[in-house]
Simulated assay, not measured.
Amino acid sequence: MAQRPERRPDREKLEAARVAFITNRLSISPDQAEKFWPLYNQYNDNRMDLMKKIHEINKSAEGNLSDTKARELIAERFKIQEELMALEKSFLGSITSVISPAQAFKLSEANRDFTRQLYQMQQRRGGRDN
């Protein structure tokens, strides 16, 4: 029970660090940030929902899988991947009215770099604890 309250601040710290990292990396001005972050957060929530669906599809494929069921799951996964692509196109279209196309282009790289840094920090921390 004590771990639950601890996780919330960590999530808040993580999101604050992501905001700072991306804002800095893309040189997002305060005026841009005011409009950008609500759009980004909505996009990210929608994206995570779709990624959860893909994860559920992948989990449902564990164990023996008939060819018929595999075809169905492949079709479902492609449908969700198409939704992901449509979501990203829509998001990029909307944010380029807020930030420059160059900033928008660099966004996915900044996200990957942030995630990579988190992973590396986690690896280093895990290495010390073991």
Rank of each mutant, 00 (worst) to 15 (best):
K59S: 10
L26Q: 04
A75R: 13
A75E: 14
E34N: 06
K53W: 04
V19R: 12
L26K: 03
R47E: 06
I80W: 08
E82W: 05
H55E: 15
I74Q: 12
A33T: 05
P30G: 10
R47Y: 07
L39G: 01
T96A: 01
K89P: 00
Q42D: 12
S29A: 12
F36T: 02
R77I: 03
D31I: 03
P38A: 07
L87M: 06
I22M: 07
A61I: 07
Q81I: 14
I54Y: 06
H55D: 14
L84I: 14
S90D: 12
E62W: 04
T23G: 12
Y43L: 01
D31S: 13
E15G: 02
N41W: 09
S27I: 01
A75V: 07
A86W: 00
Q81R: 15
K52T: 11
L92I: 10
I57M: 06
E88G: 02
R25N: 02
G93R: 01
E72Y: 02
A75Q: 14
I22V: 14
M85L: 15
K89I: 03
D49H: 09
D31K: 12
E62Y: 08
D45R: 11
E88F: 01
E72A: 11
M48V: 10
A61D: 05
D49P: 00
E88S: 08
Y43Q: 01
R71L: 12
T96E: 15
A86D: 13
K52W: 04
I80D: 10
E76A: 13
Q81V: 13
L26T: 04
G63I: 06
G63L: 07
H55K: 14
R47H: 08
D67Y: 04
K52N: 13
G93L: 01
A20G: 02
D31T: 11
K35W: 00
E62G: 05
D31Y: 02
D49F: 03
G93F: 00
M85P: 00
T68N: 10
L65Q: 07
S29C: 07
K69Y: 08
F91E: 00
E72W: 03
K89L: 10
G63M: 06
D45S: 08
E76K: 15
A86T: 10
Q32D: 09
V19F: 11
E15Y: 08
L39W: 01
I80C: 09
Q42Y: 01
L26R: 03
F36W: 05
R47N: 03
K35D: 03
L73V: 05
Q32E: 15
E82G: 14
H55R: 15
M51L: 14
I80G: 08
W37E: 08
A86M: 10
D31V: 08
N64L: 08
N44W: 05
V19T: 14
M48I: 11
L87K: 04
P30L: 11
T68M: 07
I95M: 03
R18T: 02
P30Q: 10
I80F: 13
A33P: 07
M51C: 00
S94A: 13
A17Y: 02
A16Q: 14
I57N: 15
L84E: 08
